[in-house]
Design a protein around this nucleic acid. Structure first.
Lengths: 367, 367
DNA sequence: TTCGCAATTGAATCGTTTG
DNA sequence: TCAAACGATTCAATTGCGA
């Protein structure tokens, strides 16, 4: 594609607007090869069954909107094929796409990206620092979502601001797992009733990292499932142009109002999430999983008065007590609490070694 | 499936052996519905077309004139379909499967799992604490791999040792992102030249968590891509039976040697924390029958707001309601459900005592 | 005004046994 | 087979209220 053609296409683009309508139709009306980056957060097809209550009997506000309902995997696949094809057409040859999803839909999206010739560059895990727990204790806490970053084709050039991401990460190469809190507090948009304006608003910090890392100032970022416009808001702050497409009028209104308040380089709120760092918590169970202590191995209290055995799940078992290193220590000492890390020792080469030494080893590895 | 049939199937299984051959053929030779857990770490190099073939050794009819991306995916998909179908057949109705992969193949595996009727329970991110950096600085450091945990079908039961995993995580619900170092150091198996024996040996810590969390002692764990036998080694340590399938003789030899050195942990160490759900049910009426509570005695809600009387048949009666401890609690709180055991208290020596204490007494006597 | 505790909430495929 | 009854289960963060 020639430079002239690219510029012509860009001039025909409705920049920094929210377009109403079905994203496939709207994208098909835009000029081919005209967009630098597409960020897409499509419906996840959650397939929820009944209601879910928290242990305190309060009801979980589920994502049960009509836009997330699909009759079958076949229907969802057709939908995915169609919007991805439309997205690919309007992407510049050196453009790229980000999609986000959960295990309900992300495997189908990823496979279809590959089928259509997109070239996956990374999958990125958004690790939520404060996810919703699994209330019934039937599965693991769903603590992450997956993003896929892909170029338009194998061998295509793509924008990657390596140094910018490295500085965002305190001088260390940015990894494929990003720890970012979910969107709540003041950032979470509310409607007139004080309820959340959109059930799945994404945090600006996520978009910030992704736009800084994979676009340049002046680039065009298109979002076919605009919602409340997080991608547009962050693009605007960072001096990129945006195009939003959204079917629901209520969401468009919220996004419009939000965007009117955004100023370029107005991003104080974003700096917070990257700075804080504390000593990582190391569960005792990790020492067992990693083979530093064997299930069945004996631990001895620092004062030499007590002996217990380690179990495969990282609990201890003594003559009349079982539980965590802290619980068992407290029980044996008749104390209200006990720091198991400084209380227990194990034997190596005839010597008593505090288990805290093993925790320090793990922490050293983590840095 | 009847108990007898299950036992018969188990007896026909070659337990704790490494079977030579193509995993699809070997799996098809095993009895249907006989395995508790499958762990699969399949090859994902989409370019290695020669690695893939059908059970009957016929060549898949791919678009194979020139090297062609879609042809390669079609080929890989056929391979995935075949081995997953074979795996599904030998899985017990209440069995489960774990697969692991990277962005090259995991989306195709996940989609095919869903297509075959497996029901995804969680996707899990193995977050590597010491990944290989991206030397060229062209992408993000690939710092994780993805696992998928799925039951055989929607609604099927599956084994999940919630409390054990919670213990491993020092009392906090286990999340879907697991931070575990890559396999190196003494754990990494070397060949006679001192080179690594297998390119993608998985850490035992990963398998430890997964086997403790989703199987019980005595379960059968099958691995169709056994490699150097990490799954078998950890299964053996943890008192599970394993079945390994591996095509390459060199890997089988390494695994065999490795497994011969593994010893099972003490039985006591293999017992893990269990939830209340696994304890025997005690009807509330027993407390009355045994004279622990007298008919006519008053119970008070934990929050102190409600008072009811115990009747001789083990039901409660309040001002405008009667029924079981659970029904009355739920009604008085206007809640969808209520655990009466933790909701009601009685008075002894002027103190409020939870009725659950009496249940614990009865359960203690039962042991 | 500030501190502390209680209440609220978030993309969720979130039971099992008995009769 | 199906309905009814039993009864197990939450983490981090923010907001709001009362002292």
């Amino acid at each position: 594609m020639t430079k002239t053609k690219t510029l012509a296409a860009r001039n025909a683009l409705p920049l920094n607007e929210i377009l109403a309508g079905d994203c496939i139709e709207v994208m098909n009306s835009l000029p081919e090869g005209s967009v630098d980056l597409i960020f897409a957060d499509p419906p996840y097809n959650l397939q929820l069954r009944g209601d879910l209550h928290r242990p305190d009997n309060s009801k979980v506000d589920a994502v049960d909107d009509a836009w997330d309902q699909f009759g079958s995997f076949a229907h969802y696949d057709q939908f995915t094929r169609d919007w991805l094809a439309a997205a690919r057409r309007i992407l510049k040859p050196n453009g790229a796409i980000w999609v986000i999803g959960s295990y309900h839909n992300v495997f189908r999206m990823g496979a279809e990206l590959q089928n259509q010739g997109f070239w996956i560059l990374n999958d990125v895990v958004w690790r939520k620092s404060n996810p919703m727990p699994n209330f019934r204790g039937k599965r693991l806490t769903n603590a992450h979502e997956t993003l896929i970053w892909a170029s338009k084709a194998e061998g295509a050039k793509y924008t990657f601001n390596y140094e910018a991401l490295k500085s965002l990460n305190e001088g260390i190469q940015m990894r494929s797992d990003w720890v970012i809190p979910i969107c709540n507090g003041g950032e979470r948009l509310k409607d007139d009733n004080g309820d959340k304006a959109h059930p799945t608003q994404k945090p600006e910090a996520l978009l910030h990292r992704l736009i800084v890392g994979t676009t340049n100032p002046g680039d065009v970022v298109l979002d076919p499932f605009f919602g409340t416009g997080t991608s547009g808001a962050v693009a605007k702050m960072l001096g990129r142009d945006f195009i939003g497409i959204e079917r629901e009028e209520a969401y468009r209104e919220v996004a419009k109002k939000r965007l009117s308040k955004i100023r370029k380089f107005d991003r104080e709120a974003l700096e917070v999430s990257t700075s804080k760092r504390s000593e990582p918590r190391v569960p005792f169970g990790q020492l067992v999983e990693r083979g530093m202590l064997r299930p069945g191995e004996e631990l001895f209290s620092m004062n030499g008065r007590h002996k217990v055995k380690v179990r495969a799940d990282g609990t201890l078992i003594g003559d009349d007590v079982k539980g965590s290193i802290h619980q068992v220590g407290a029980h044996l000492e008749g104390a209200p609490s006990c720091n198991g890390w400084t209380y227990w020792t194990f034997k190596r080469d005839g010597k008593q070694v505090p288990i805290d030494l093993l925790r320090q080893q793990i922490r050293a590895e983590m840095n």
